[in-house]
Amino acid sequence: MGDHELNPERAKKTEERSRRNFIAIITAVVFGVTAAAMGLFNLIFMRPRVTYGSPAKVRVGRPDSYSPGSQLELPENRIVVRRQGDKFAAISTVCTHLGCTVNASDIGFACPCHGSVYDVRGDVMGGPAPKSLSWFRVSLAPNGELEVDKNQVVDPDTYLEVKV
């Protein structure tokens, strides 16, 4: 520091250098932020807002089309709809292991791919599956049909009560 007072010439040079450093740092920061923002935008761009293939909300028919105590497999929606008394529930048939479709039976569910077995509630009884099958929220659509929202996972044994 003392150098600068003694030698104004050098002080000027140092000042010049630090100004250049400052500009370089600012440029780097602006460049970095821009690059990061563009990366983020690209990622968001790659994330579709709607999906063409499988709608998350599906209507599965009027409640009275199910008989009490029954359950119906809807393979194209990969769910089973279960009716107990006047209560309705929907359970995923996507195996939590590696995404195969499980087959429903009276005693539960069985995965044909890697042998995972689930009970009626969808809890794992055996095989490599890491967690139980999802239960989805069921609601009543304005037109009187049952609607299953596959984006909303609910606790097991959550039923929707409908006056049929």
Partner: peptide, 13 residues
């Protein structure tokens, strides 16, 4: 997985 598949399941996307 969703970004890779463009959907929740393997399909056209």
């Amino acid at each position: 997985r969703f970004i890779l598949l463009g959907d929740y399941t393997v399909g056209g996307e």
